[in-house]
Design a protein around this nucleic acid. Structure first.
Lengths: 206, 206
DNA sequence: ACGCGGATTGAACAAGCGTTTAATCTATTG
DNA sequence: CAATAGATTAAACGCTTGTTCAATCCGCGT
């Protein structure tokens, strides 16, 4: 019932530790006892506050959905600085405290095809749709012949940095969402979005 | 020890059923007893052949890595028809039997950060690097100022269709890797890669 | 025909799981 | 201060898990 803030009731502490552990290792791999230990309480109290492990997971889902609700409304009302433009994921990441478990949890939600994850995905998509429509209306973007697919393409190009961040960091040698990696990534991506893949020097293929 | 082919030894049957179940629900959610039932054998036999559930999972990892090895060498030796060019993931999917559990298993490997998944990711990246270098050498692609990031960008744009296929299908209303969705997706993506995002009609913004 | 080794099984095991229960602590209220 | 309701706990329960073990089946070489 209570939202984020600095809520240090036992219930909130349990929920937060569960979120962290679930994000790191997946709900199936985390036992109620481990959550209780991480929260500094007894296993019984976890059940007493949430009814069951499944309902605790649902509470974590709901909490994460609430965090994203905040982010989406803040993005819609212009409360986010999208100065460098390209990446919603990066803007989100800046809003969350460093090392927040929320991105990792979203990763798991999307992996398992969880309904909560699909809901966030859908809201993300409609948010992206609204933003591109606004850019088209202001003439900053071509109309596009298939706007739905275009929005989805841009969206997942962005979201995938959250999903494959670790693998990209290891292979390319730089964290694409870190301070240095983000600009290097954005430069290349914006160059492709502006000039296409073919001919950076100005000549263009078929 | 034995490779794919039509290996119908009990060991191979167990491995294949485990692969399917792991891909569908994740290794943690699948019990040895369920695998044994799906393979039509006793739980004890599963352990007898693989030593432990963990080693069975490792055997499945190895097997999937072998499948991708085949795909990569076939792609390197030109054994794949990349006529429509853009998507390695789609070309891979065409090589696998319909309904193959391998893509789903790869999804789990990548999103859980598994070491086997990172290995496949790395091979995928170097394969993509070689391909773009070949295209640059033949003048079909601009040199690019940040070739590593560009290759990674193109690669994950492609790979993400495998990761978020279900969510994309539900939100956009069409399976981006299905027969119809693939062409619709490829048209839009290639248009962006050729002409950029701005001004399909030919005018370009800053 | 015989025996021998691997394949296979059903039953059992210990351990860990989520959950329950009864008791204890704590703090607020009348 | 006494009483009461919720927070909290330790211990236990039933169940499922991965794994073990002894016994049985099956095919193959001599």
């Amino acid at each position: 019932m209570c939202s984020a803030h600095d809520d240090l009731t036992a219930r909130a502490v349990i929920r937060d530790r569960a979120l962290e552990l679930f994000a790191a290792q997946g709900p199936d791999a985390v036992t109620v006892r481990r959550i209780a230990a991480a929260a500094g309480v007894s296993p019984g109290l976890v059940i007493h506050h949430f009814g069951s492990k499944e309902r605790l997971r649902a509470a974590v889902d709901e909490h994460v959905a609430g965090v994203f609700d905040d982010l989406f409304t803040r993005a819609a009302t212009g409360g986010l600085d999208m100065t460098d433009g390209a990446s919603l994921a990066e803007a989100f990441l800046r809003q969350l405290p460093p090392g927040s478990p929320v991105p990792g949890y979203l990763r798991r939600l999307l992996l398992t095809g969880d309904a909560a994850g699909t809901g966030i995905f859908r809201r993300w998509f409609t948010a992206g749709r609204t933003m591109t429509e606004a850019l088209v209306a202001r003439g900053l973007l071509g109309p596009g012949r298939d706007p739905e697919v275009r929005t989805a393409f841009l969206m997942v190009n962005d979201l995938v940095l959250l999903l494959l961040r670790d693998q990209l960091a290891e292979v390319v040698g730089i964290d694409p969402l870190g301070p240095e990696g983000a600009v290097r990534w954005a430069e290349e991506v914006l160059d492709i979005y502006r000039n296409g893949l073919f001919g950076t020097e100005g000549e263009s293929a078929s």
